[in-house]
Nucleic acid binder design. Sequence first.
DNA 1: GCTGGCACTCCCACCGTGCGAGTGCCAGCA
DNA 2: TGCTGGCACTCGCACGGTGGGAGTGCCAGC
Lengths: 340, 340
Amino acid sequence: MAHDERRLEVLRAIVQDYVSTNDPVGSKALADRHDLGVSPATIRNDMAVLEEQGYITQPHTSAGRVPTDKGYRLFVDRLSAVKPLSVAERRAIERFLDGAVDLHDVLGRTVRLLAQLTRQVAVVQYPTLSRSAVRHLEVVQVAAARLMLVLITDTGRVEQRVVDCPVDIDAGAVAELRALLNSAFTGVKLTEAGDKVPDLLETAPQHLRGLVATVSSILLETLVEPGEDRLVIGGTANLARGSALDFQGTVSPLLEALEEQVVVLRLISEVEAGTVLVRIGEENAHEALTGASLVTVGYGAQDRALGGLGIVGPTRMDYPTNMAAVRAVARYVGQLLAES
Amino acid sequence: MAHDERRLEVLRAIVQDYVSTNDPVGSKALADRHDLGVSPATIRNDMAVLEEQGYITQPHTSAGRVPTDKGYRLFVDRLSAVKPLSVAERRAIERFLDGAVDLHDVLGRTVRLLAQLTRQVAVVQYPTLSRSAVRHLEVVQVAAARLMLVLITDTGRVEQRVVDCPVDIDAGAVAELRALLNSAFTGVKLTEAGDKVPDLLETAPQHLRGLVATVSSILLETLVEPGEDRLVIGGTANLARGSALDFQGTVSPLLEALEEQVVVLRLISEVEAGTVLVRIGEENAHEALTGASLVTVGYGAQDRALGGLGIVGPTRMDYPTNMAAVRAVARYVGQLLAES
DNA sequence: GCTGGCACTCCCACCGTGCGAGTGCCAGCA
DNA sequence: TGCTGGCACTCGCACGGTGGGAGTGCCAGC
């Protein structure tokens, strides 16, 4: 029916106006600013229906309407097209990310870029260890009975662990150990590293067995485990900035949740490369994220996501633009990392 | 003169009361809450003098007095003793930091601990590269003409750089290069690494010269340079929390400055191990830090500071307690890192 | 040099009010 | 049947006036 379409048009107009002005929007303002072809009175009727359906609400009688989470959801799913970035923005992305010297630097730049582009809090996950493979394992002797294990993955991550050994180790053993570990693990996915351990133990010369066992267990325990994933966060100033109003006065619970990392990590790792995922307000089970929206996407090669990135902001945000920015940045980062 | 002493006592009382209540403190309240042995009228006279000397000020007529930056300075320098930590707090420090698996983890825990202990924003610098020595240099082939250089320092830092080479490299060359670099640089301080390059180039076999030159220059350019220092920041939620009032409404400039890192890094690296440094309000040249105080200290072995750590908060903070916390944490972190 | 008393200042919280934006409903019209 | 203009009603909010209270400076007395 034509009615339904117009109602959706009204909802779209409400979302757009509310996002840009931050004021509850009334029927008259809508009629003025949009070519809906009907009078305010008609719009009022539509609004009443939309309200009954739960897409909009009014903060108090005789105020304008505000989209609900459900309203934003409908808007994102059916009423908006991802807005292409301007040439200037594309150029800014390139300029910002080019010249990065290492993974840490790439992700640091990415998070700043994303924060600047969207004026929201930006979040970037380090490439997941669980989807990475071993490129090289280095063993460095730190003290007589202490080794440092350095894992270099094919995604460019470098992780270190200190291993305490029961007995002193001589330099020759270190070299042997290094060779053994590399021949066993190089090229192996971290999730499958565990399967290689029995073989490794068998082929290891007698005098190294104990050492190899200790080292492998540390490797598996501390590196393969999920929860070892890292997050870079930036643009928190954007939270304190305008959107104090959007979070009923205080942003500190949200900041705490962000610093805690674990909640956001769980959400951000449920991504696919290329598909932008939007979670709105109450859809985020966690309490501190009620009232906030996440826009996330996986980055990496086409076939597999190395990790996720995205933004966190008030539910009242410009979804089309932000989705575009997140997607574009992820694409560019994916390319950049594929090269190295 | 006895007068002067009592005046200082009055100043101390003002600072203490103001810090704990956040209300401008009047003569009557002072007389009630402190045993100054004189009447409010006398205190008023002292206050008038203190105000004339610039130690306190009143927000408006008929309000109580508030310490100025100068007043806090005097308080910190002469009127306060660093408050020893409670046993529970000491135990909390140990419990919090024990079980850290690597440098990243240690510093992450440190920053959370410090933020929790002081209820301020905590800042921890990675051990400065300029004061570190090379423990090991690893060279990993990433592509035909691309190497990854991994630097492991004696302070536990691991840094990586990607090096693009003009020509393809075979595996043998990589091994030779690794051996050359390690024999030249292992044990050498990063600041002195430059001096070793001429020797290195001379002893390098003909066919590796070009490669060695490329790699060394990357090493020196990107790793020895200052500005490569890193910062971990935590507890920003504490900023948004109560102290919104302390920063004339908005904390976002301060958050921006923190994320920028460079300003704070400059301040935090001017530390000595063991000596707690306090910078109050206007003393911080940078605009965004006006209105904020920094309490910093170097951590590391007794003889040399590996890096700095500290807190950032409103000028209205509990200096004695925070100074104690910062010092205790630095000491503990120093010990922890000395072991590894 | 300290003290109590006193007059004065001035912020702030409180309150009542009018305005305006916005709504819902209704009768009329295409 | 659905859209429209009109109208009465609601209610939040900005606004201005006001009283109380906390705090001060000064002064005379001890």
